[in-house]
Design a protein around this nucleic acid. Structure first.
Lengths: 191, 191, 191, 191
DNA sequence: GATGAATGAGCGTTCATTCAT
DNA sequence: CATGAATGAACGCTCATTCAT
C-alpha cells in the first residue's frame, strides 16, 4: 500500500533523474505517479517546493544510511572510510537518487539551497557529522590544516565524480575499486 | 568596439551562470546583450546551438590558457601541478565561465555533448593532454594503477569542488591555498 | 448547451472563411471561440491538425446532406441532378462551409490532403458516389467519353464557380436559377 | 539583360506557385531573385502590393495572349472557342502562372481584389472581352438567358478545373481533349 | 540605387497553476 | 480528498519591414 505523496516523490525523482527539470512537466510527473495533476498541489504548494522537498527527503535518507553503524568513537580515518564507503555504496545502489541530487546540486536550485542553509546557520558553518569529523581531524593534526570547506571538497569532490562515472557507465565500481578510491580520497586530506 | 555575436555570448553566459538555463529566456539574453530578440537568430540557429557553441568557446579559451607554458617534457608531477594550477587560476579569474561550464556539464546538454564526443572518437577514449599525462603516469608507475576515468575524477573532482566554493563565496582561494589544494589533489593520485 | 470542441470548430471555420489561414492566428480563433489559447491544444494536437479535421468534418456533413434521399436506382440524369442540386443547396445554406472548403482545397493543405487520399487508395482512383455515377454514365454512353477527372471537372467546376459568386454576393441563387445551372452543367457532360 | 523588378516578379511567382504564400518569405523571394531583401521594397511598397501587382501582371499577359488573333467579328461560338482554347493553351504552357493565379484567386487576396474591382466599376459589371461576348450572345439569344456572372462561371469554371487537373498531373491535355472540353463548355452556355 | 544586418511584433505552442465538480 | 479541463503568461522562433552604409 502506497501513499500518494510518496508516489509523487518517486515519479518526480525518476523523471527528473532521467529527463532533467526541463523535461519533467507537472503533468508528466502526475501521469507517472498515477494521480491527477491537481493532486500534486494538495501535497506541495508549487513545483519548486516539490523539487526542494524531494531533495531534502533524499538527503535525509542518505544521511540515515551512512550513519548506520557509524563508529563514532573510533579513529578519524576509520570513521572517514565508513562515511565515504557508505556514501558511494548508497549512490551505487540508488543511481536515480544520485542523478537527482546531482541535477539539483549544480542547478540554481542547489545554489540557492546551499546559500539559504549557510545563511540560516548562526555559527561559522553548518554542523554535520562530516564537519565534526573534519574539525576533530584538523585540530588533532591528523588532517591538513585547511578550511573545512576545502577539506569537504577534497574529500567528497572525487567521490561524487566517480559516482557519476559509474552511473554513466564509464566505469564499474566493484568493492575493490571502491576501497582504493576511498583510500585515495583519504590521502588527499590526511596530513 | 564590440561585435554583436560577442555581446550575445557574454549576455548568455552571464545570465545562465546566474539564473540557469531555465531562467534565461531568449528575450532576456537579447535584452542584456542590447540587441533585438531576432538578432540572436542571425548568429545562432537556435537557443540550443547558442548554448553549445558558447560551451565550446569557453572550453577553447580554457584549453588555450592552461596549455600556455605547459612544461610538456618535465616530470609528471610538475606537469600536473601546472595544469591544475592554471585550471583553478582560470576559474578564479573567470567565475562566470566556471558557473556556466558547470551548469552545462551537469545538464542534459552536457550529457549529450559528452556522449557525442565519446562516440565521435575513434580510439578507446578521447585524447587530451590530461589523458596523455595520466596514461604516462600510470605506465611509469608514478600514479596509482587505476582506470583513467577514476584518476581523472580523483584529480579534478576536488579542484572543481573548491572552485565552486570559491565562486559561491564560501572560501577565498589565494595563491597559497591554491598550491596546497593542488598538492592534496596530487597526493590522491600519486602512488 | 455547447461543447468547446464545437465552439473551436465554428470559430476556426468562420475566421478562416473570412480572413484566410494567414489572418487566423490561434489566439484569434481562441478569442472568437471564447476559450483560452491553450484550450485549443486540449482538443487538437496542432493548428494544422485542427485545420485538417475541420475540413474532414465539413466534408462529412456535406456528404451526409447530398446523399439524403439519393435516388440510387433512378436514371443517371436524375441522380446527377439530385447530387448537383443538393451540393449547391448545401453551399447556399452554409456559405461559411463553402468558403472554408474552398480555401482549404486550393491551399497547400488541400494539395497534401488530396495527395494522401489518392495515395491511400488501393484502386485506380477514389471511389465515391460521383465516380460511380460518372463511370456508369460513360459506359452506358449517356455521358461523353472522357476521362473521369475531366467529367468531374466539367460537372462540378461550374457549380463551385457559381457557389463562389453567390457567397461573394455577386449573384443570388434562387431555386429557379439553381435548376437552370444544374441543367447547363448536365448539358456539358451528357452526350 | 534583365531588370531587377522582373527578377523579383519571376522569383515570387515561382516560389509562391510551388510553396504557397505561407512558404514564401520576402527573404526567400529576394534570395531566388538574386537581390537583397531591401531591394524588393524599392520596387514594391509591401509584400501585399507585390502579390497584387504580380497577379495583375500575369492577368495582363494572359489577356494579351488570348486576344492575339481574336476573331472579333466572327460568330459568337467561334469567338468563344478561340478564347477558351487560348486560355487553356496559355495555362498549359505556363503552369507556374496558373498555379499562382489559382492560389491568388481563392485566397483572401483574390476575394478582396474581385470585390475592389467590382466596387470600382461605375457600370453594372466590369467590361471585358468576355462580358462583351456573353452580353451579345445573350441578347442575340445564342446563349442561355442567365446573368453574366453565371455564364462566366459556367464557361470558365470547368476550364480552370481541368487546367488544375493537368498541372497536378491527373490528366494530360492534348489538342484533341482540349477541343472536346471547349465544346463541352460551350454546350453548357449555348441555348 | 542597392544592400543585408537589425528589429520586434506576432506566431504556434507549452505548462505551472486553479477550481468546479 | 481527488480530479483533469481550462487557463493565459511566457516560451522559442519567424519574418515583413527599416535604415545606415
Amino acid at each position: 500500500m502506497s501513499c500518494k505523496r510518496d508516489d509523487i516523490f518517486n515519479a518526480a525523482r525518476n523523471l527528473i533523474a532521467e529527463c532533467g527539470f526541463h523535461g519533467s512537466s507537472v503533468a508528466l510527473i502526475a501521469d507517472r505517479a498515477g494521480v491527477g495533476a491537481g493532486t500534486i498541489y494538495l501535497y506541495f504548494k508549487s513545483k519548486d517546493i516539490l523539487i526542494n522537498e524531494l531533495y531534502q527527503d533524499i538527503e535525509k535518507r542518505i544521511s540515515a544510511f551512512i550513519l548506520e553503524d557509524y563508529p563514532g568513537t573510533r579513529p578519524i580515518r576509520e570513521r572517514f572510510v565508513h562515511l565515504g564507503t557508505r556514501l558511494l555504496t548508497y549512490f551505487i545502489a540508488n543511481p536515480l537518487d544520485f542523478r537527482y541530487v546531482e541535477q539539483f546540486y549544480y542547478s540554481p536550485y542547489g545554489a540557492a539551497f546551499r546559500r539559504d542553509r549557510i545563511m540560516g546557520e548562526p555559527g561559522t558553518c553548518k554542523h554535520t557529522v562530516y564537519n565534526e569529523l573534519f574539525e576533530q581531524g584538523v585540530s588533532q593534526q591528523i588532517l591538513r590544516d585547511l578550511p573545512l570547506f576545502v577539506i569537504d571538497s577534497l574529500a567528497f569532490g572525487p567521490l561524487l565524480a566517480v559516482a557519476r562515472d559509474h552511473t554513466l557507465g564509464f566505469i564499474t565500481l566493484d568493492e575493490h575499486l571502491l576501497e582504493e578510491i576511498i583510500v585515495a580520497s583519504w590521502d588527499s586530506i590526511k596530513r
